[in-house]
Design a protein around this nucleic acid. Sequence first.
DNA 1: TAAGTTAGTTACTTACATGTCAGTATACCA
DNA 2: TGGTATACTGACATGTAAGTAACTAACTTA
Lengths: 101, 101
Amino acid sequence: MNRCICPKFEAAIEVLAKKWTGLIIRVLMEKTCRFRDIREQIPQMSERMLAERLKELESNGILVRNVYPETPVRVEYQLTDKGRSIEPILDEIQHWAECHL
Amino acid sequence: MNRCICPKFEAAIEVLAKKWTGLIIRVLMEKTCRFRDIREQIPQMSERMLAERLKELESNGILVRNVYPETPVRVEYQLTDKGRSIEPILDEIQHWAECHL
DNA sequence: TAAGTTAGTTACTTACATGTCAGTATACCA
DNA sequence: TGGTATACTGACATGTAAGTAACTAACTTA
């Protein structure tokens, strides 16, 4: 459309391109997970980073945080519709990666 | 496919997600450009960053650098097939950005 | 009472990315 | 000889991202 810089495109890149973000979304794409579960599926990532990313993704409306006051507490992270709509992007990246890398 | 980390996916993110990369590719998607042209279309980016990204993209086989020894010298940057195959990814991101941001 | 569980937080450090700006090489033109 | 143009490069400073590891809070079980 416009040959100048599209702020929405840039904003999207800023959300999606951060380290760990894609992986976290991919894990949650399969099923709703607890903090612990995500850690176990992405063991390279520190707790600190996971907590930071989850907060960002929540504030961007990509996932919701559900707290169940059991003992010990259970916190589940679930993609929203907005979050699930990222799937085609990740699929395209995966496809490109498999063809060209 | 695999719920663990896919190194190809990560490698793709590493290439595509860097600051300015998407914008540079988008500019070159429209037409082959000289260094100067790209600068003018992305004025926020410094020359230093542009030169660095162009080198990276060239070494990743996403674009080719053609030198015409005229006076003054003309250097044109052109997407390869691999580079052009990134278009669907950028389109998906653009689409998502327009629907959700 | 001590240890375990979940879900974080905080402080500190290191690494890497980016910005700024001056300088280079080559060739032309006045 | 000085100025202009293109396409960079290099040194340095700053800023941001990420890693490490210890700590907290609430509650339960041994």
